[in-house]
Design a protein around this nucleic acid. Structure first.
Lengths: 253, 253
DNA sequence: CGTGAATTTGACTGACATCAACTCAGGTGG
DNA sequence: CCACCTGAGTTGATGTCAGTCAAATTCACG
């Protein structure tokens, strides 16, 4: 409940090894997760996966208006997606990491509705949507899984709406940190010590706050012993209390 | 572009008559739209549609945690969906009207992630998801359409994120009005004169504002000749300017 | 027609934005 | 190796938009 206040985990809780062990092309992407896919199915899935593609830090994977051809599974790296409002200002709508799927917003109108930019040098797999669709019709398990992923994205965004519509700055920021931590944990990385791949500005934009506010919040969290911060490296010194702040249980710090 | 700043239309731009003319059970719901479904397909679709259900004003269609069994197509009426934050406060995540589909957020975890309440006496069709899935595997056109609808919900929510993260109160409210107007228009109703089915409080909650702010905004829009307001009946006197405010072109009024 | 709920309006407050100055890290070239 | 430069980040002073509190008014419904 407290964690669901923010974008839910995008990865089901799986032993990461299982994912790594399998799927020739995309050692870790979401489409390989479906439980119950037999080997033959796995192979068919592998076959439709298009080319692997490297995306340099700062490079654009797709932009608003691009025709929709493929979904992208992130193999390695981090991305941000953002919208452009009519004044040309950005609104970051999400940060994505290894194992997550990009481009699902484009299905509705055959055009991408947001820009996607790599936050660091990254690898993705192209998944041509036309091929995927054919496969989905044949493979009920994969179909079910695909629907889960789309639905999960809907749920994630509802969490962000809650965050933006309902929470104070401190709570938003705590929720952001806790969410990152749980996603790294699900991937087998440390949930208490990691690099922020995004700038203060990008965090602020995502959370509906200014860069100065983010900076002040980091300082406040540092002072109150919740975080150790050194540039973009952060360490969670008191995850429980951070979760409590996210949940709104612990209000002032 | 300016309109896409808010939740996109949920209905494609279709002559409403076509929808009404067809589909025995659900005269108007989204699943009947898929272009290219032949009569036989239409019949199969009709057959899986479960019972029609009336939902009285204020009654709950589903609540957080309910097991996921069916999607619901709104035949008639209006709904709101909302989340509950850990403090027990509501966050309205959307308003739905005839022709829209409810419950897609539940696919990911087989449980509903939000509450859905009727804003007026409403009719829905239950669509058992298990049956729908079987049909989807057989009917590529329907599958494609279903994916479009889920994707559209993702896009809609991204629009709300933009609204909550990026816009000022005046702009948010204008965007809200303009969005309602275009949805009524797509349904063949007046786009310049309609009833608000939701309370000021619900609007405020949705837009991340207080009830007092909404009240003041209504007064301001009335004073500046943009709206005629009488209780919940509103009339758009200057739709172009409202769109300009939404777009951020016209900033102060 | 009366009662409680919803809405409006006004006065005040506060959280976060804005503006501005400063610090620091990392890269570059002499 | 160091001086310089640049962009990211920090910190402080001030401003403002929308929230809060309170009271008046209108509306909905029995």
């Amino acid at each position: 409940m407290m964690i669901s206040a923010l974008p839910a985990l995008t990865l089901p809780s799986f032993p990461v090894e299982i994912l790594r062990a399998r799927c020739a092309t995309c050692s870790m992407h979401q489409l390989c997760l479906p439980m119950g896919l037999d080997m033959a199915d796995m192979d068919r899935l592998d076959q439709i996966i298009g080319r692997r593609r490297k995306v340099a830090r700062g490079a654009t994977l797709f932009r608003i208006g691009d025709p929709f051809v493929s979904l992208y599974a992130i193999r390695l790296g981090h991305f941000k997606t953002y919208q452009i409002n009519p004044n040309g200002e950005e609104q970051v709508t999400g940060f994505q990491m290894g194992g997550e799927l990009l481009g699902m917003d484009a299905i509705s109108a055959d055009r991408h509705h947001c820009n996607s930019v790599a936050l660091e040098d990254s690898d993705v797999c192209e998944i041509p949507f036309a091929s995927l669709q054919q496969l989905l019709a044949d493979m009920p398990t994969l179909l079910r899984h695909f629907h889960r992923m789309m639905s999960q994205e809907i749920t994630r965004e509802q969490g962000v709406m809650l965050l933006l519509g309902n929470m104070q700055a401190t709570q938003r920021f705590a929720a952001f940190i806790v969410n990152l931590a749980s996603r790294y944990e699900a991937r087998g990385y440390s949930s208490t010590k990691f690099q922020l791949r995004m700038s203060r500005e990008e965090i602020g934009n995502y959370l509906g706050l200014t860069i100065e506010s983010i900076s002040r919040l980091l300082s406040k969290f540092k002072k109150s012993g919740l975080l150790k911060v050194s540039n973009r490296e952060i360490e969670l010194l008191n995850p429980a209390k951070l979760k409590a702040i996210t949940a709104g249980t612990e209000t002032c710090i």
